[in-house]
Design a protein around this nucleic acid. Structure first.
Lengths: 281, 281
DNA sequence: GCCGGTGATACCTCCCGGGTATCGTGGCTG
DNA sequence: CAGCCACGATACCCGGGAGGTATCACCGGC
């Protein structure tokens, strides 16, 4: 199976429409139809059910969509990482990705400690939005990531645990609950007039609900300050809170584990060193 | 990057010889040379250093070799799993792979429990040699595996722990140590006249050393019975020992953990059910 | 019944993958 | 030191297939 065929199939499977898929791929519709037919013939499997009015995935097609995406990511990663390894200054630079707005203190310590190592290479730190890190690691835009379980998913990566911490509720100063010394999750989520914030989904849309839409942490803190919402977050963010905000430990919230994650087949010397430094912190 | 180019590059990188690589690929040498040149030009990176007498990998080439193998496995997996999903009886059969000679008792319980579930699909059990399981899971020949840590590596897979057990030393009956109630690793490995067995490597060759070559567990037990070697193995294999063999716990040997492992992007209903049943055992 | 949208087919072109023949270059050997 | 040989690169040719345009076949809706 060639990657071109996979790309074509994934496009059609996502659009469920040959015309739009062809447009997205920058080719005409007939070659696309033929390519899919050939693919089906070669695999001996019906991938799409064409109903002369609508296109839908068969069970086999759903499998190929999931597996094909993963395979395309792997191919893309191979290209990107090779390019980076070759065009670099000789010693390949590493790309580390972490969530924008996450506690920078751990990252700063890691970068400092690594830079002090002999033979340290340049590390390119990329900040990205919620849930993007896994994709970047998978398709080669990044080599290593700091992930926060259980918010992020580290499935398919090798990981080392760096830190585990509790969570705090962030409340506007003066709120009745801000006088408590500890809270439970249910105390915070069910507050009348303080609905939980709504984070964007991967496709940029927001779930329905009464809470305010937020895109990042500063926005969120601002909204809490204004008394419009409240939130539960890792306790290492406590020192990023301003004057008007109060943090109260939430005893039954799940622990947040910070891990350093990398693709399992990585064999880079620099990466191994970075991970080693991280675990020694 | 097309998979054909990746296959070509991996062949050359493994052979470090264009002629042999071309032969292995079933094409002539000139097209192979051109394909590699084009790949290098497109990536803008030198992958191989041709010295008019020898071919060697550059740093970027080494990266592409590792990443390319992974990508090719992913593409192959996509094809195989799709084929299986389509040509099956409708409800896709799962392929479970485990080491030949491993304790079958846990597997039997798992298969029985799963078969009793409503909507259970047929499970094809494949036995394979040492260290082959990861490859089979990676390239789609299998969907799920029973792995034994720390012997096998589960990096890159999702896993659930099924069991953890100690290890025993297996000695010929009558051996002085067989009267002990517990041993340490160093008691067993340093025995004069009882060198540890040699297992084949992935390429079929054996490491050097005095011990006898073994291919599987029955062979190994036979050799222990003959007083030619001795071995340390998980205690669940105790009930496979015959008359002439004695098992003694090895207190400082690492615990052996049996896990069920599957590729992280699997979304199959049947697989999820199987894993759920396994964790309930 | 006509129209519009959709995927499939027919047919053409041209690029590129693959083949054979040959060259250029070094290392090895007699 | 000359000739040979091993090996990758180059030159040139051919055929298949990828991609384009024009058109058909089917069917739902007004």
């Amino acid at each position: 199976m060639e990657t071109r065929e996979l790309r074509y199939f994934v496009a059609v499977a996502e659009e469920l429409h040959f015309g739009r898929a062809a447009e997205r791929l920058g080719i005409a519709q007939p070659p696309l139809s033929r390519a899919i037919q050939r693919l089906e013939r070669r695999l001996g499997v019906e991938l799409l059910h064409r109903d002369n009015r609508s296109v839908e995935l068969t069970a086999a097609g759903a499998v190929l969509l999931a597996e094909g995406r993963a395979a395309l990511d792997a191919v893309e990663a191979a290209g990107r990482r090779t390019r980076r390894a070759g065009t670099g200054t000789g010693s390949a630079a590493l790309v580390l990705v972490t969530k924008a707005g996450a506690s920078g203190e751990l990252l700063a310590k890691l970068l400092d400690a690594y830079a002090a190592e002999p033979g340290a290479v340049e590390i390119d730190v990329q900040l990205c939005g919620i849930g993007e890190q896994e994709g970047m690691l998978r398709d080669g835009r990044a080599d290593v990531a700091l992930l926060y379980l259980p918010f992020d998913s580290a499935t398919g990566f090798d990981t080392e645990v760096l830190r585990s911490e509790g969570q705090i509720a962030v409340l506007p100063a003066g709120h009745p609950l801000s006088l408590e010394t500890s809270l439970r999750t249910s105390d915070v989520t069910g507050l009348p007039g303080l609905p939980p914030p709504r984070w964007p989904r991967r496709d940029g849309t927001y779930p329905d609900g009464p809470g305010p839409k937020v895109r990042d942490h500063t926005q969120l803190l601002q909204l809490i300050m204004l008394g419009r919402t409240t939130a539960i977050m890792p306790e290492s963010l406590r020192n990023q809170l301003g004057e008007k905000l109060v943090a109260v430990p939430v005893v039954d919230a799940p622990k947040v584990t910070t891990v350093i994650a990398w693709p399992p087949h990585s064999r880079s010397r620099a990466l191994a060193r970075l991970v080693e430094v991280a675990t020694r912190l």
